[in-house]
Design a protein around this nucleic acid. Sequence first.
DNA 1: TGATGTTTTGACCAAGTGGTCAGATGTTGC
DNA 2: GCAACATCTGACCACTTGGTCAAAACATCA
Lengths: 201, 201
Amino acid sequence: MSRPKTRIQQKNSQAILEAALDVFSAQGFRGATLDQIAEVAGLSKPNLLYYFPSKEAIHETLLKRLLDTWLDPLREMKADGDPIAEIMTYMRKKLELSQHYPRESRLFANEILQGAPRIRFAIEGELKDLVAEKSKILVAWMEAGRIARMDPVHLIFSIWALTQHYADFDMQVRAVLGEGHDPFAEAGGFLDMLYQKLLAP
Amino acid sequence: MSRPKTRIQQKNSQAILEAALDVFSAQGFRGATLDQIAEVAGLSKPNLLYYFPSKEAIHETLLKRLLDTWLDPLREMKADGDPIAEIMTYMRKKLELSQHYPRESRLFANEILQGAPRIRFAIEGELKDLVAEKSKILVAWMEAGRIARMDPVHLIFSIWALTQHYADFDMQVRAVLGEGHDPFAEAGGFLDMLYQKLLAP
DNA sequence: TGATGTTTTGACCAAGTGGTCAGATGTTGC
DNA sequence: GCAACATCTGACCACTTGGTCAAAACATCA
C-alpha cells in the first residue's frame, strides 16, 4: 500500500496519515490507539488495517515523510550566499515550520524525547552528516571573518531549540503570554534581533 | 499516604516515585504502565497501589514536586543584583537542572507537549505570575540602560528553550556531536557567550 | 508469647488494546 | 448485466491494562 494507485486509496491513505499525525503528535506512539486514529479519519479500525499493515507502519510512514521536510531548510543553506542572510533565512524557515506544522514538530519531539527508537538510524546518519557538512560552511565563514567565531554545531542547536520551542511548548508560550499576543510574530522579531547580535563579527 | 510515617513507607514511596519518574519521563503518561513502574521499583503491582491510590496519583505527585524545583532558579533572580550576572546565573542554574535532572525535564516536556492536561492550572497561574513579576525587573534593567532592550518574556523563553533542549533532545545532541564531546560543558560556554552578546547594552 | 496493626501478594476482573478473518458491499471494465 | 477485483465491516481473539480483594506474611510491642 506504499504506492496508492486508485483515487480512493489515495484519499483514504491520506486521511489516515492526517488523522494519525493528529493523534500521534498529541499522545505519543504508545499513547495513541488505532481506535482514535480510525475515528478521526472517519474509517473503521479494520479498514485502517486494510491500508496499513500495523500501527507501527503508520507511524513509520509519518516519520519518514517528516524527516525530509524537516531537513530541507538546512540543506538550502549555501556556502556562496551572504553568511548572515543565509543563517537568518534558515532560522526563519525553521520558525515557519514550527508555526505551520506544529503537529509534525511535536511528533518529532515525542520521538526524540523517548530516545528516538524508530529514527535513531536517521539521526545518527543523515542528520549527523548534514550538520557536519553545514558546520564546515559555518566555520569557513567564521575564518573569513564574516560572522563571529563560535561552535558551529551549538549554533545550529540553538536554532533548533529556539524555533521548535514555539511549536512544542506552544501551550506554555500562549499561557504565559496571555491574550492579545501573536507568539510567532513576536518570536520572529526577537530571534532576528538575537541572531543579528550573535553573528555580528 | 501523602505523609509517610514509618521507615518502610518512607522507603517504598520513595522507590515508587523514583521508578515512576524513570518510566513516565521515558514513555509519557499513557505509554507508562504500572507493571513497568512496579518492576523498576522492585515491588508488586498491588503493592504499588497500596502506597498510591492510582497511576494518576503517582504522576500527579511527581509533577507537583517537580514544579517547585523547576521554578526556584527564576525565583532567585533579584532586582538588586547585577543584571547581567543575575540573568547569567539563572541561565546557568537552568542548564544545571537539565544536566542533573534530565528525567524531570523530560517529564515536564512530555506534559507540556500533550497540552499540559494535568498542570495547566499551574502554568496559567503560578508560572505566568512569576514570569510577569520577573519581566518587570528585566524591563526596569532595560530602562536603566543596564541591559539591551528586548521583549523580556521572549528572553525568558529563550533561556528555557536553549537549556531544556540539552536535556529533552539529549539523544539527538549526543548523536550529532558524536563521541568525545561533553555536551553540557560546551553548552555552558556557548550560552555564556550568547547571552553576553545578547544582553550587552 | 500473643494480639494488633502494617505490609505484601496471588488470583481475579472489566475494559481496552492491536490485529485477524470470512464474508458482505462497491466499483470497474467488458 | 456480469465477472473480477477493490473496499469495507461485524464478530472475534489473545493479550495487556488499571485496579480490587481476601487472605497471608510480617512487624511491633505489651
